[in-house]
Simulated assay, not measured.
Amino acid sequence: MTATEGFRAPTTADGRELEGRVAVVTGGASGMGLATTYALARRGATVMVLDLADPGRTALASMLGVEEDRVRSVAVDVTDADRLQSAFASLLKERSRLDILVNAAGIAPPTPFEDITADEWNRVLAVNVHGTFLCCQLALPAMRSRRWGRIVNFSSTAGKTISTAGGAHYTTAKHGVLGLTRHLAKAYGPDGVTVNAVCPGLIDTPMARSVLPDGTLEQAASTFPIPRVGEPWEVAELVAFLACDRAAYITGAAIDINGGDLIA
């Protein structure tokens, strides 16, 4: 057998590799979620954005430069199980399928540990972990029925070490997201569903700017092997890859995108 025998060329990206796919992106109206909405829609997916801030379908399509029938948006708190169930049911009734779920919604208050109230602790875990759980539970039946699905959960470098910007509750939540990701990957891989996490470091988003004092973001990033702050579109490109056929053999992974911040 020669070195080239048995070689099968991979499917290459043609710019519309997600044509016909239907996606849900939580937190998809700003920051890395918005960049992800753009990346998926530009590759041909129809995307439903679930976000507390609802820009509206027309405004969202115009902002992203995509056809209006490529996107829709629903104002929803990801901790509201009834509202989520209604949004998912509406999408499935309209499109009859759900292929991709991206759980990007999150909050990261920088409250010192001794000042965290029980309510704030519960709220941070509810948005970052419970919201991810609820959306995965709602999405999986449709994916399993078609034996194809992609779930991408947003963790963080905080999920592998401790948070730079958020508090102890954020660190705890992002570790929890990684545990949930691995469990679902193991359980549903045989059904054709991959479940992965992305772990962004310091990314230039409104949330990061809101919790770090002026100049702190750039100062911290200047010590990285790639000495700059990351861009939301760079994270979105990784998410879009994990959502496509070319990533079919990747599951249960927690992929760093942090400029080398965690290199020992």
Rank of each mutant, 00 (worst) to 15 (best):
V102N: 04
T164D: 15
P141I: 03
V211S: 05
L242G: 13
V235I: 15
A75Q: 09
L134H: 14
S222H: 07
A53D: 08
R72M: 07
D214Q: 06
G6M: 00
P112G: 00
L84M: 07
T161C: 06
G65K: 02
A185P: 12
T132R: 03
D82W: 05
C135W: 01
R97C: 12
G106H: 04
A247N: 08
V177M: 04
S90F: 08
L50K: 07
Y170G: 10
S210R: 06
M143E: 12
D119F: 06
T36N: 06
G159M: 00
N122P: 14
L84E: 10
V195Q: 13
A104M: 08
V47P: 15
G149E: 09
A240W: 10
P227Y: 07
A221Y: 10
E237G: 12
G215Y: 01
A75T: 11
S86W: 06
R146K: 12
Y188M: 00
A89G: 13
S145P: 15
A253D: 07
F113H: 10
L140W: 12
D80A: 12
G259M: 05
V127Q: 01
L101Y: 13
T205K: 08
T111F: 02
I255M: 06
L242P: 15
L212C: 03
E120I: 14
R209L: 05
V25K: 00
V74S: 09
A75F: 09
G149K: 01
S86A: 10
R123W: 13
D82S: 10
Y170S: 09
T111V: 12
P141T: 05
A118V: 15
T111P: 13
N196G: 07
G65V: 01
H183L: 05
E67Y: 05
T164P: 15
V235N: 12
G65P: 12
S73L: 05
N196T: 05
G6L: 07
V152N: 03
Y38D: 10
A61D: 07
G166L: 04
G179K: 03
V193K: 09
R83E: 15
P227S: 06
E17F: 13
E234H: 02
P110G: 02
P206L: 00
L60M: 02
N153K: 05
I100N: 08
E218P: 12
S30R: 08
P55R: 02
V74K: 07
A35G: 04
V229G: 14
I257F: 06
D245T: 14
A220V: 04
D256Y: 05
